[in-house]
Simulated scan of single mutants.
Amino acid sequence: MTTTTQSYKALTDESAIALAESLNFFSQGAKLESQEIGDGNLNYVFKITDGESGKGLIIKQALPYAKVVGESWPLTLKRATIEANALKKHGEFVPELVPAVYATNEELAFTVMEDLSHLTIAREGLISGEAYPKLSADIGKYLAKTLFHTSDFALHPFEKKRLAVEFSNPELCKITEDLIFTDPFFDHETNDFEPELQTAVEAIWNNGPLKLEAAKLKKSFLTEAEALLHGDLHTGSIFASETETKVIDPEFAFYGPIGFDVGLFLANLIAQAVTREGEKREAVIRHIENTWKVFSSTFSELWEEKGIEAFKDTKGYKEFVLEKIFQDAIGFAGCELIRRTIGLAHVKDLDGIEEPERRIGLKKQVLQTGEALIVKRKDLPTIAAVIALVEEQN
């Protein structure tokens, strides 16, 4: 259902409850409670619950600025519509892996969706030592199905180009361009890191070959409209349990290179692997391996069964496509590792390490791994080779 209103106004607990009541989602006369649970940088998130039955829903509202900075960093409200439409589009292919969308409102920039509070944000669970046995298989399938089905390999070119226009997302893409591909490689004011990392960071800024490869990856991100991406697929954008996985927050969705989503997810697993030890570390390493294994096998099956590309049966073409996706993914993963360590937006996997000497040492390892993945990506033919590189750096 799509609702309309006159002008934008930030929701409150009271107005969020009134909105929930208007949707007839709850029983007549239900005593509803509201809690603002958003911990991200860009949005309000209200959890509306019937205290008696426990039934709930989520109302997510985009803010016209970035919470992490304030009103001095204005943002388009269109991202709320993009996010809702991306959830719906991806839900056509993997309905079991995304939350259901109940209602949207473009003017108020909100989306009403399924309550996933019975699950845990994967980043938090991984940090606390959870294994999430289905995580990599589910995300590998999510990546393969959403990316293949929204690409030229599966769509008539008219439909694919229509979707590319619908999901034009220049403002949020500019955030990605700057924070992942540009600022960490230069002495930019948005960068944020401990003084103990200064020497390692300056080595990145002065590494010409590394910066050349980063520039190539940025060019791919800017110019290759291959498929509808999630655009920000990290472990904080995934709810999980032992038996269930749900991908959330595709407000950065746009048409870009297939390897980008794959690379971001792998990078966040790699960062987690660096901080773990023993069996817990091995569990994350297995997730890294299995993500690519499931993605490539599922993508290959879709290629054979549903591909419409005229050259799909040409010997070697599928392998060429998968090789390019893999190399792109590894390079993008390297950029993500560097930016999560010294850029504006960090991750708790690293910043949450309380002992300073250990935290700095692990951050240096993450930076070294990121650099190696970017520069050596064409010399890493398999996911096993990538894992070996990660092990070498640690």
Results as ranks from 00 to 15, higher is better:
146 T>A: 04
42 L>I: 07
342 I>G: 05
361 G>L: 09
66 A>T: 08
254 F>G: 00
290 N>W: 07
56 G>C: 03
376 K>W: 10
175 I>A: 12
68 V>T: 13
125 G>A: 03
377 R>T: 03
380 L>P: 04
374 I>P: 08
150 T>R: 09
254 F>M: 10
390 V>S: 03
199 T>F: 12
386 V>C: 08
84 A>R: 01
309 E>H: 14
19 L>P: 02
73 W>V: 07
78 K>E: 15
199 T>C: 01
343 G>D: 04
226 E>H: 06
156 H>W: 03
318 K>H: 13
243 T>K: 06
154 A>R: 08
25 F>S: 02
168 S>K: 07
114 E>M: 05
119 L>H: 05
348 K>S: 15
15 S>C: 00
301 E>C: 03
185 F>T: 12
36 E>C: 09
389 L>V: 12
81 T>N: 13
129 G>V: 05
205 W>F: 14
226 E>S: 02
161 K>E: 13
388 A>I: 00
149 H>M: 13
113 M>N: 05
383 I>C: 11
139 I>Y: 01
255 Y>G: 11
382 T>W: 02
322 L>A: 07
324 K>I: 09
276 R>S: 15
341 T>R: 03
293 K>T: 13
68 V>G: 12
346 H>T: 14
82 I>N: 06
3 T>L: 14
80 A>S: 15
208 G>V: 15
87 L>I: 07
209 P>A: 08
358 R>F: 01
340 R>P: 06
82 I>P: 04
392 E>H: 05
163 L>E: 10
72 S>D: 14
94 V>N: 04
216 K>L: 10
45 V>W: 05
66 A>G: 14
108 L>E: 14
121 I>H: 10
37 I>K: 02
291 T>E: 04
63 L>S: 08
99 P>I: 02
6 Q>T: 13
277 E>H: 13
92 E>H: 08
101 V>S: 09
258 I>V: 15
88 K>D: 08
6 Q>S: 11
177 E>D: 14
120 T>M: 10
41 N>Y: 05
234 H>A: 08
297 S>H: 09
356 P>F: 03
286 R>E: 15
222 L>E: 14
120 T>S: 02
74 P>C: 07
244 E>T: 15
144 A>P: 12
84 A>I: 01
5 T>I: 04
218 K>Q: 13
132 Y>K: 01
66 A>L: 15
173 C>M: 15
129 G>S: 11
97 L>E: 03
289 E>V: 08
117 S>D: 09
142 Y>C: 06
19 L>K: 06
207 N>S: 10
360 I>Q: 12
153 F>Q: 13
134 K>I: 03
56 G>F: 01
352 G>I: 07
296 S>L: 01
133 P>K: 10
320 F>S: 14
292 W>R: 08
288 I>H: 05
257 P>K: 12
370 G>W: 00
78 K>M: 09
195 P>Q: 10
135 L>N: 06
98 V>C: 14
375 V>C: 07
383 I>T: 11
190 T>A: 06
220 S>H: 07
192 D>C: 12
139 I>N: 02
130 E>W: 00
81 T>C: 07
145 K>C: 10
349 D>R: 04
1 M>A: 05
185 F>I: 06
17 I>S: 01
176 T>E: 10
